[in-house]
């Protein structure tokens, strides 16, 4: 709560939190079936209608309401992004923490593997994984999670290495504290701030990667609406129905902006230099 109110007092944080809040609300309402129109049902007579008071963002080639589809699409994209980032954060943190704690030679080995993963562009690596396993929601989550794991491992390893050298870790060794206690209470607890920032920023990238994969037809499969998919379907109708491209594109952009702004604000708020020696 303290963090949320601090975020709200931060100028860009406020915008970010509001955007994320609206997106979560849209996803929630869509999940409860409270969309203005049925997003999956086709209305043959209302094909390609421009935005109006009935269809706020127009309809597509099959007469489906764009606004309702966007609400569902946000839910779908957020689901994949949250799941993928959660997996990446968990795996990356574990790898980074153990890598720092064990030291050579494990550290070198694991970090070189992370370097190899990091060397591929995210979308290319995801394509590779999908090429092996085949498209689908679950594969998207796996692919995005694997792509972002090295970033978390790097973010955790650096500070963990320096925390490992701190006197309070030495002190814990003189009491005979267990390895688990030192790793969780002394290292992980002090890494909460950088991790929170990283999770928020990773959500923004994950959203973008998911949209990219769906756009290429490798993520969410129709008829389930997804932001990237809607963009792909609209590309041939750009001349006749520009709203079909405009609204999904804006939705993707705003979502990424929201997470990015929140991440930046979190970084400012959790920066140890602005907090004295408490962080």
């Amino acid at each position: 709560m303290r963090i949320l109110s601090a975020l709200f007092r931060h100028p860009s944080g406020r915008i970010g939190v509001i955007i994320i809040g609206l997106y979560l609300l849209a996803a929630l309402l869509a999940a409860l079936g409270l969309t203005p129109h049925n997003a999956l049902k086709m209305f043959a007579i209302d094909r390609m209608k421009p935005p109006s008071s009935t269809y706020w963002m127009g309809t597509d080639l099959l007469g489906r309401d764009t606004f309702s589809r966007l609400m569902l699409g946000i839910g779908q994209s957020l689901n994949i992004a949250f799941a993928a980032v959660a997996c990446a954060a968990l795996a990356g943190t574990t790898i980074g923490l153990l890598s720092a704690w064990w030291g050579a030679p494990w550290d070198g080995l694991m970090m070189r593997i992370m370097d190899v993963l990091l060397a591929f562009p995210a979308i290319l690596l995801a394509l590779l994984i999908i090429a092996i396993v085949g498209p689908g929601t679950f594969t998207s989550v796996t692919a995005i999670a694997i792509v972002y794991t090295p970033i978390f491992a790097r973010v955790v390893r650096g500070p963990a290495l320096s925390l490992k050298q701190r006197d309070f870790v030495d002190a814990a060794r003189t009491f005979g504290s267990s390895q688990r206690y030192v790793l969780t209470r002394h290292l992980l607890l002090n890494l909460v701030a950088p991790l929170a920032v990283q999770v928020t920023l990773a959500l923004a990238w994950a959203l973008l990667t998911e949209a990219g994969l769906s756009f290429l037809g490798l993520g969410t499969q129709p008829p389930t609406p997804s932001l990237g998919l809607m963009l792909a379907e609209s590309k041939n109708l750009m001349q006749q129905a520009p709203w079909l491209m405009l609204f999904p594109a804006l939705t993707i952009m705003l979502g990424i902006l929201g997470f990015n702004l929140t991440g930046d604000a979190l970084r400012d708020i959790l920066d140890p230099r602005t907090q004295g020696r408490t962080a």
């Binding site: 006197d167 009491f175 005979g176």
Partner: peptide
């Protein structure tokens, strides 16, 4: 230790700090 700022984990309260050796 020499540096009382570095030898206490800033994220733990005094109760947790003092209990650590006993729990260990």
């Amino acid at each position: 230790f020499q540096d009382p700022f570095a030898s206490l984990n800033p994220r733990l309260n005094v109760e947790a700090l003092l209990a650590e050796p006993a729990i260990a």
